[in-house]
């Protein structure tokens, strides 16, 4: 009973807050207005020959190229290649990194031994490995996945390992006093209490994976949004570059939102923490 009341009170509070702030519809209209305004100014500037469409592209030209690329299916082929490489690399690198980072909790000595290697790898901009990866694995999907995995692996590992260091030692003592084995402590305390750290690494990693894939595609690739942008850029086809950039932006947003949604699924208790703070 009390719980329901509490929830009602929170909801009422939220509603009140919302009423005070500007309606979301108005805000969205303003945002749309800014985009349309910019496009209109751009287009007009091109029409009145105030800027050079060969160097800047133009909204109408971008639209024409989008229609062409959608109709030929080229845009989807490239988008799919990039998204596929990003997601696979992200999942592979993040999962592997998180698992190894967590397992390091078992052995301080081992963690100590590999520490400098991890630091060295972490400092290295992973894109520097792209030429080698492409030489070894070719310009296909496998190289994209490999690059994205490498880019995400170390971040996930470090984050998970740091997570295991933040555990309240009282919780581990409590488990010990209950007669828990090390395996039980790992499963019931170490993993769940490190999850927020792991998830926050995921949010960074989806961005890193995308950067790695696009970087790889810039260097050498048979398809992908990075290749599309790179090739069109070399040909001074600015409208196609814009199509690529805007599609990439949309892809990035969707991937980021996807990972954020996963967060509330995986750590529901954090959501109830936030609710309380409200």
């Amino acid at each position: 009973m009390e719980m329901i009341q509490v929830e009602n009170v929170t909801k009422q509070k939220i509603r009140k807050v919302k009423r005070k702030s500007t309606p979301i519809l108005f805000i969205n209209l303003c945002r749309l207005g800014i985009i349309l305004g910019l496009l209109a100014v751009w287009e007009l500037a091109v029409r009145f020959q105030m800027i050079n469409p060969f160097l800047m592209g133009s909204p109408s030209g971008i639209w024409e190229e989008s229609v062409r690329l959608v109709q030929s299916g080229q845009l989807f082929t490239d988008m799919f290649a990039t998204v596929y490489g990003t997601i696979f690399g992200f999942v592979l690198g993040s999962l592997l990194g998180s698992i190894i980072g967590l397992l390091l909790w078992y052995s301080k000595t081992f963690a100590n031994i590999i520490d400098p290697f991890v630091v060295a790898l972490n400092g290295l901009p992973k894109i520097a490995l792209a030429p080698m990866i492409i030489i070894w694995f070719g310009s296909g999907m496998f190289s994209k996945i490999a690059l994205a995995s490498i880019a995400t692996f170390i971040v996930a590992l470090l984050s998970a390992y740091q997570g295991t260091h933040q555990i309240d030692s009282n919780l581990i003592n409590l488990m010990k006093s209950l007669g828990a084995t090390k395996g039980q402590i790992f499963k019931k305390v170490v993993i769940p209490s490190s999850l927020p750290w792991i998830i926050s690494a995921f949010r960074l990693n989806i961005g890193f994976a995308l950067i790695a894939v696009i970087g790889g595609e810039f260097i050498s690739s048979d398809k992908g949004l990075g290749r599309m942008i790179f090739v069109a850029g070399n040909l001074f086809n600015l409208n196609v570059v814009w199509v690529g950039v805007l599609t990439l932006m949309a892809v990035a947003i969707i991937l980021y939102v996807g990972v954020s949604k996963m967060e509330s699924r995986l750590i529901p208790w954090e959501a109830s923490n936030k609710q309380r703070e409200n």
């Binding site: 309240d168 009282n170 919780l171 409590l174 010990k176 006093s177 209950l178 007669g179 019931k188 305390v189 769940p192 209490s193 999850l195 750590i267 208790w269 923490n273």
Partner: peptide
């Protein structure tokens, strides 16, 4: 003798994820 002694501290030590 683990298990014979149960304890309770100033911090409730409830697992937030449970």
């Amino acid at each position: 003798s683990t298990g014979h002694v149960g304890y309770m501290m100033q911090k409730d030590l409830l697992f937030p994820w449970r």
